[in-house]
Structures are given as C-alpha cells and as structure tokens.
Design a protein around this nucleic acid. Structure first.
Lengths: 168, 168
DNA sequence: ATATATTTTCAGAAATATTTGAAAGTTTAA
DNA sequence: TTAAACTTTCAAATATTTCTGAAAATATAT
C-alpha cells in the first residue's frame, strides 16, 4: 500500500470509528487529516481533501477547536486561517478524556445525586432496588472520575508520569 | 421526588446518555428498566413501560443479550419469556469494557498494523508524519488494551480485586 | 392434529442527524 | 472608502438510524 492509499484508509476508518463514539464522521475525518498533515491546513484544503461543503467544514473545525483538538494557526503573509492538531496521541487522548469527563460524567453524577434523594419506604423492594442501582452508579462514577482525573493530571504527577514514559 | 418520577427520569436520562456513546436510546432504556426492576420483565412489560413497539422491543432485547447485559429467565409455569439484567454495576461496566474492546479496539489495532506497513521513503516528511501518528496510536492502543484486559480479568487477580473492593 | 400463545422478521414510515450552498457578516488591503 | 477575500450562519435537502406493525415463523397446550 502506498502513502496516498494509506492516508485515505486512515481518514475513512477514523471517521467510521468516531461514529461509534458519538463523534460525527466529518469531525473525526478532519481530525484524522490534521493528525497526519505535517503542515497546517486551510478550510479549503480540507474541503478538497475530504470532499465536503464549506458549511460542514466550518462547523466541524469549530467543534474540533471546542474540544481542544485543533487550533488556529496564523501564517504570516497569508490571509486565510490555517489549522493544526496536536500530534502527540497521548495528549490527544488526555484531552478527549478531559472533555468527556466534563461533558458527560459530571452531569451524570449530578443526576445520581438528585435521584438518590428519592423519597419512599426503604423496605419496599422496588425502592431498595432503585436506590441500590443509583448508589452503585454513583460510586462507580466517582471512582472513574478520580481515576481519570489522575490520568489527566498525570504530567503534574511525577510517579505516574514516569510509569507512562515507560510505555511511550 | 417520588419513586415513579425518579424511575422515569432515570430511564429517560440513561437513554439520552447512551445516545452519546453510540448506543441507541431504546436499548439503553430497556437496560435501565431491567436494572431497576427487582423482578424479571417480559417483552410486553417493557413495551408498556417504555411505550415501544413489539419489533423494537424484540430487537433491542436481543442486542442487549448480545452485549451480555441481559439474559433470558424461565419462570416455571409461565409461557412467556422473561428477562433480567446484572445488577452489580461493576460487573456491568466490566462487561461493557470487554465488549467494546473486542468490537472496536481490537479491529483498530489490526488496522494500525496494516497501515504501519505502508511503503515509502522514510525521509519524506509526509511519510514520517504518517508513520509517527500510526505508531503512536498503535502504542496507545496496545497499552489501553493491556490496561483494560487487567481490569476485565480483575476477579482472577487477587490484588486488584481487593483494591476494587475498597471502593465498592 | 389443531388451536392458541408467543417470538421473530422486515419493508416501509418516522424520527434524527448531518450536510449543503447561498446569503449575510467580517476582515483586510489598497 | 471600497472591494475583494475570507468566514459564518442557517433553512432546506439529504442521508442515516431507528421504529412500527402486520405477517410469518415457532413453540406450547389441549
């Protein structure tokens, strides 16, 4: 397989892969393109490479920036905006974990707190089953939150950081 | 909030939550319903509780079973099939991790292996950038795979199992 | 065997999510 | 200032996913 074919396959598979994770195809494909592009890409570059419309490109680039996965780059003397992505996959993964934690785990824990307050007779088996599930989810969520927080804060943690380096 | 309201909210939020994770709303809602139901539920029970059609219920129950998250229960003297879900959230989480690992991580690693074989001049910067990303993803994937495998196999591991118990 | 209960399938309908493209908005250069 | 270059917005079109419901298949009881 030559480089062009490989790039195409990477972009298209990354897009399909993203779909399983609640990330839309185009956003994942733009990210894939930026990952493997040594130089910053303009919106027009992406539109051409991925065969997508201006509006679609614009919206998804903005989402990527919102996720902290891409950033604007100014090229002196150029009028257009260019974009790059962080190339260190570990940092990328950390950033994704951080965002999902904020966007999903935290709201979920809030909901569990609320549902834990449900009023009712604790001897009723329906009630018991409900409260048990809610507290179980809450405990798991808190534990996951802590674990992920440690991971995300890894660079501030000498020990973990060194463990990670071993595998890097 | 009373139990009925709380149950409703839990089911509906769990469904919305699943949507962000590539799991369809109905499947997540059925799972939520089974989680908080002390007794096994029939397909008709679920159709009524969630206001869904027979076909939809049937298909999603089967998917849940495929994910190892629900199972058929025979109630002696009853003609209908009944279903339950594992109530221990830790086991549920482990099962989900196990399945996603198999369905997504492993195929992704296979793809990276393939893309790593791409032919080309390693001094070319396009080529270099591409290979670096691929090997980075592969390394991260392998590490994640190992870590998750440890987690999933936790009950076979005395030490980890005890660490987990502390938080349980 | 026949009737009845239950489960499964699947084509078409409905709901949701994504994408387009043209118009409006903004920035920059001369 | 003006005009060209570029970016953003958003209503409508398209694509994708999910759901329905009735018919077919299967299982069970009499």
């Amino acid at each position: 397989m030559n480089l062009e074919e490989a790039k195409q396959q990477f972009i298209s598979s990354w897009g399909a892969f993203g779909t399983n994770w609640g990330i839309n195809r185009t956003m994942a494909q733009i990210h894939a393109l930026l990952l493997i592009s040594p130089d910053p890409q303009s919106q027009d570059d992406m539109m051409e490479a991925l065969n997508i419309s201006r509006g679609n490109a614009n919206m998804n680039i903005r989402d990527l920036i919102g996720w902290g996965l891409a950033e604007r780059v100014i090229i002196p003397g150029e009028r257009k905006e260019y974009f790059t992505a962080e190339k260190d996959i570990w940092k990328v993964a950390k950033q994704i974990v951080k965002e999902r934690k904020k966007r999903e785990l935290e709201p979920m824990l809030q909901l569990m707190d609320k549902l834990e307050q449900t009023e009712g007779d604790k001897r009723d088996k329906e009630m018991k089953a409900f409260i048990e599930v809610i507290t179980g989810i809450k405990k798991l969520g808190i534990q996951a939150d802590k674990t992920l927080e440690t991971l995300v804060k890894a660079e501030e943690n000498w020990f973990i950081n060194n463990v990670i380096k071993i595998f890097r």
